[in-house]
């Protein structure tokens, strides 16, 4: 793909990635967010943050499986949309859900493991978003890659956060857990392959 085509794809990503937000605004103005609109927005933004996280994490496995490389250029944009929806999620939680009742919030974050896990995941995304620009990539050099490996931990925390939210019926979060395990599995498989190939090569020499 040439630069022009990548640009078109990026524009498409922007439009598509903003649709979930547009949808919420649309539903909100039409009084269609249900009996518990705060919970609805909270769950929707949280789920979309997780979806963008999983899409971001699938760029490399796509390369490994198909050999395509152009989609790697979308990774930063997709990751930032994950951060965008995570910010909306946490804003909904702090401002709409807890109405800035800080004493109640403190209790909720410290006493409830699922909130603590989700909060930790959000905090970890901040340094990643802050260092996503080209300047920081150049400046941090090899450390940048190490830092951004935090995304694996964030993904695990996010899925656990979702699993812990559900009272009884785990069906939905389990789909996300399976998706994450698959994405990790592909990476590990290819990592193992290249490692053993390198070892064979080393032996041959």
């Amino acid at each position: 793909m040439n630069k022009q085509q990548i640009l078109y794809v990026k524009v498409a990503v922007w439009v598509l990635a903003l649709l979930p937000l547009v949808r919420l605004i649309w539903l909100g103005f039409n009084d269609n967010l249900g009996a518990n609109p705060i919970e609805f927005v909270e769950h929707s933004t949280g789920t979309w943050a997780l979806v963008f996280l999983l899409i971001t994490l699938s760029m490399t496995p796509i390369r490994q499986l198909t050999g395509l490389v152009w989609q790697i250029q979308l990774r930063r944009l997709l990751g930032l949309f994950m951060f965008f929806y995570a910010c909306l999620h946490i804003t909904t939680y702090v401002w709409l859900d807890f109405a800035l009742m800080w004493d109640e919030l403190l209790i909720d974050v410290t006493k409830h493991p699922r909130i603590l896990v989700g909060f930790a995941a959000f905090l970890l995304t901040i340094p990643l978003a802050a260092t996503s620009n080209s300047y920081m990539i150049k400046r941090l050099k090899t450390n940048w890659k190490k830092l951004h490996q935090l995304v694996y931990l964030i993904a695990i925390l996010a899925v656990v956060h979702f699993l812990m939210l559900v009272k009884k019926d785990l069906t939905e979060p389990i789909y996300y857990a399976i998706a994450l395990v698959l994405l990790f599995g592909i990476r590990l498989y290819y990592k193992f392959q290249t490692n053993s190939k390198a070892m064979l090569k080393a032996k041959a020499m």
């Binding site: 909100g28 807890f98 109405a99 812990m164």
Partner: peptide, 17 residues
């Protein structure tokens, strides 16, 4: 799982707190 010291009244909208 849930804070029991406060609650959200249903029907108070997005900014009902």
């Amino acid at each position: 799982r849930w804070t029991q010291s406060s609650e959200r009244p249903i029907g108070t909208g997005l900014f009902g707190g």
